[in-house]
Write a protein that binds this DNA or RNA. Structure first.
Length: 431
RNA sequence: GACCCCAUCGUCUAGCCUGGUCCAGGACAAGAGCUUUUCAAGCUCUCGACACGGGUUCAAAUCCCGUUGGGGUCACCA
């Protein structure tokens, strides 16, 4: 039975790289009908914070990576100590006191040899362990070091495949020596290429958001982020770009993962997000938008016309780039008066259109049926009577109603605004 | 610096393992156009890469060696 693990350290948020590692582990477990295990590596008492544990768990849940088991290293110190004692007794480790510290550390005598690692992605990698100095197993404060706790846990938890970032390649020979010394069977290794920032260096806050939760706040859909992360270092081979994770379970093959590090490209994530946004269920999208509208005071929690809101969401849905665009673009439908963008006004509202606006409001109010088709017909007949092109009146009306040059079709806007609000807004520009 | 990893359009990649079908395909971005009531979407087109140098071979993006470049690791952090 395949057992993989994702082992984040709660010393910070779950970032993009961690999310991708979690994704590939999760995918592998689900594809092989194995177990996906979460191990919180909180051995660093000073830097580990419970709020980071919460943040990481929330992010993983949001991304859709459900775990089968969860462990905390901070609760397993006695296990690590037991195995360190064992190595001590077997003469494979020794105690040593550092001059600047109280207590003694337990240190592993690194055997000098050539060692070969078989990597699922990179084939064979050879190391010369004579280049590695003796490794601390248990620190002077009795807490285990990363490499030691990692090996003991991976063995105790029966991890069959260690899928992790490239940055762990040089830890691998150290860990393999430990497996051997402890008499544990070796898991299979797969080292994933790193995700880089646009500057070619490590993904850092300087070059954009790094935390998974940031993308959630920014209005990206979990499915879109999963899809994007999947495409970083892996491709289905048939030129397809849009693959949801449930389908990816069937297609994903760890041995096909690229060896090259990939650059995180916000533009492509944006495109994928837009593709998902167009197809996401409008009801679900509405659920995501409601809290934002409540926060902006555009609607009252538990007291709004949901059907009307869903129609509005449908209206804007195909043009959204991120979920959060809705509150910005549809604000005029919730505000008493639209916020007029000065640049838009400068462009379309400098000419006096009193007569045209007046005639339009009169025609609108005279409509027997107030639906999108009638509104359009009403508008078209007016411009035809006036002998002008539709666009010469469309743009000014749009800016007067919405305050913006962008947005859905004008007749839809008028329909959802209603005749009263529409006329009221137009009247402000009638002298 | 030592050790390790990597190297196809600006970016993500297909092709590489099993040399010829590749004067290298797709997507994002960029540019142009269509549509047109704006924006978004959509459609059409354009720009654009096998890092370099040696081999091996009838034939190399594909195999080998070297160079260069980029990245990672060298903690009583994880």
């Amino acid at each position: 039975m395949v057992r993989v693990r994702f082992a984040p350290s709660p010393t910070g948020n779950l970032h993009i790289g961690g999310g991708r590692t979690a994704l590939f582990n999760w995918l592998y477990a689900r594809a092989k009908e194995g177990k996906f295990i979460l191990r919180i590596e909180d051995t660093d008492q000073l830097r580990s914070k419970p709020e980071f544990v919460d943040e990481i768990l929330n992010s993983l849940e949001w991304l859709g990576f459900n775990w089968d088991e969860i462990y905390y290293q901070s609760k397993r110190f006695d296990i690590y100590n037991k195995y360190a004692e064992k190595l001590l007794q077997e003469g494979k480790a020794y105690r040593e006191k550092a001059p600047d510290k109280d207590g003694e550390a337990i240190i592993f005598k690194v055997p000098q040899k050539k060692i070969k690692m078989q990597d699922l992605i990179r084939k064979e990698i050879e190391f010369d362990t004579s280049l590695i100095k003796d490794q601390v197993l248990i620190k002077s404060d009795k807490t285990p070091t990363y490499n030691f706790a990692c090996v003991v846990d991976d063995a105790q938890m029966n991890i069959t495949h260690v899928i992790r970032g490239d940055d762990h390649i040089s830890n691998t020979p150290k860990q393999m020596l430990l497996y051997e010394a402890l008499g544990f069977p070796l898991p299979k290794f797969a080292h994933l290429p790193l995700i880089m920032g646009i500057d070619g260096g490590r993904l850092s806050k300087r070059t954009g958001a790094t935390a998974i939760s940031d993308y959630r706040k920014l209005g990206y859909l979990a499915g879109a982020l999963d899809n994007y992360l999947l495409l970083l270092s892996w491709a289905p081979g048939d030129n397809r770009e849009l693959i949801d994770i449930n389908e990816a379970i069937k297609l994903f093959d760890i041995t096909q993962v690229n060896k090259t590090s990939a650059t995180f490209d916000l533009k492509k994530l944006g495109w994928i997000n837009n593709q998902y946004l167009k197809n996401v269920d409008s009801e679900k999208l509405t659920d995501l938008i409601v809290p934002q509208l409540v926060e902006k005071n555009y609607i009252q929690k538990d007291n709004f016309d949901r059907n009307y809101l869903v129609s509005l969401v449908k209206l804007f849905q195909p043009r959204l780039s991120v979920v959060n665009d809705f509150v910005d673009w549809a604000d005029f439908l919730f505000l008493e008066e639209p916020k007029i963008d000065p640049i838009a006004a400068e462009k379309h509202l400098t000419k006096d259109l009193s007569s045209e606006f007046k005639q339009f409001t009169e025609k609108l109010l005279a409509l027997k049926v107030f639906d999108i088709a009638s509104i359009e017909e009403c508008f078209r007949s007016l411009v035809s009577d006036l002998g002008i092109e539709a666009k010469t009146l469309v743009h000014p009306v749009r800016v007067a109603l919405t305050g913006k040059t962008i947005g859905p079709g004008l007749f839809e806007v008028i329909f959802y605004l209603g005749s009263v609000r529409t006329c009221k807004r137009l009247e402000r520009f009638i002298k």
